[in-house]
């Protein structure tokens, strides 16, 4: 029954388009039902809302303004976390001393879900930006650390042997073998962490904030403006998608040796 379309790209586009279109139509008719009136917004209104809010402010700023705030929070925490997480992860994974020093604390912190840090962060850093940076930082850093540690642990012992055979000194092994070997796993960690950072910032903004896309959807809920809620969710999904695509593209550039090319 499936239509036979040769070209992979065209096929994907066709089905993607059809599928999104169908959802849209279903959504439209569902929103027209009487008892759905205040529960499900008209998708056309949602699209219009997104379009308008690019220029017209909601609350303190426009849609882009909110996105800008959310992204700043994500990026500040995330970049800091990447640096610290990679360094600590290597220290913990490569050196036994590092592992003995860091592992115990790390194991305790690691089991706490990112969201559970929100109240403590607010207590410690107030309701301003710092608490949000902290929440993003602590949750993504632990994810990145985990991946770096695994990456270092998974380095094939035989590569170290080969390297020694080729004249590598013990103190060169780390930079020349362990580091490049762990790159794909580290990258995986960075990817997962970015997704988690995006989810966490939404939660943090819903709990306590006056701007950002998390605030946007929570505000929609309190004012019973479902159009705004759904517009926010779609924008959140689009940004999540963009971030994932960027990371995948970066991976194909940086870890080319690890991916079976055409």
């Amino acid at each position: 029954m499936a239509l036979k379309i040769r070209n992979e790209g065209v096929r994907k586009f066709f089905w993607g388009f059809l599928s999104i279109f169908l959802v849209f139509v279903l959504w439209y008719f569902a929103s027209q039902l009487d008892h759905m009136k205040n529960l499900l917004p008209n998708p056309i209104n949602v699209i219009k809302f997104i379009g308008i809010s690019v220029i017209a402010p909601i609350g303190k700023t426009t849609l882009f303004g909110h996105l800008y705030w959310s992204m700043t929070r994500v990026m500040t925490g995330y970049i800091l976390a990447s640096i610290v997480g990679i360094i600590l992860g290597f220290f913990c994974g490569w050196s036994k001393l590092g592992s003995a020093l860091i592992k115990p604390i790390y194991s305790v912190l690691r089991s706490i879900p990112s969201i559970a840090w929100i109240p403590l962060a607010i207590l410690w850093f107030g309701i301003g930006e710092n608490s949000k940076y902290f929440i993003i930082f602590i949750s993504t850093m632990l994810i990145i650390m985990t991946n770096v540690i695994d990456g270092v642990k998974d380095v094939d012992e035989s590569y170290l042997d080969v390297a020694r055979m080729l004249g590598t000194k013990e103190n060169q092994l780390f930079l020349h073998i362990v580091l490049p070997c762990a790159v794909p796993q580290i990258f995986n960690g960075l990817q997962v962490a970015l997704g988690a950072a995006w989810a966490t910032v939404i939660a943090a903004e819903m709990v306590r904030s006056s701007k950002g896309v998390g605030w946007l959807i929570l505000m929609g809920q309190t004012s019973m403006n479902m159009t705004q809620v759904f517009a926010g969710i779609i924008v959140i999904g689009l940004v999540g998608l963009t971030l994932a695509l960027i990371m995948r593209w970066l991976e194909s550039k940086l870890c080319a040796w690890n991916i079976r090319g055409k």
């Binding site: 035989s158 590569y159 080969v162 020694r164 055979m165 080729l166 004249g167 073998i177 040796w257 690890n258």
Partner: peptide, 16 residues
């Protein structure tokens, strides 16, 4: 050490 270079049965190039 590099005074005895090995060509391995399973090659063992550095993939990166």
């Amino acid at each position: 050490g590099p005074d005895r270079a090995v060509v391995f049965q399973n090659i063992q190039l550095f993939p990166w």
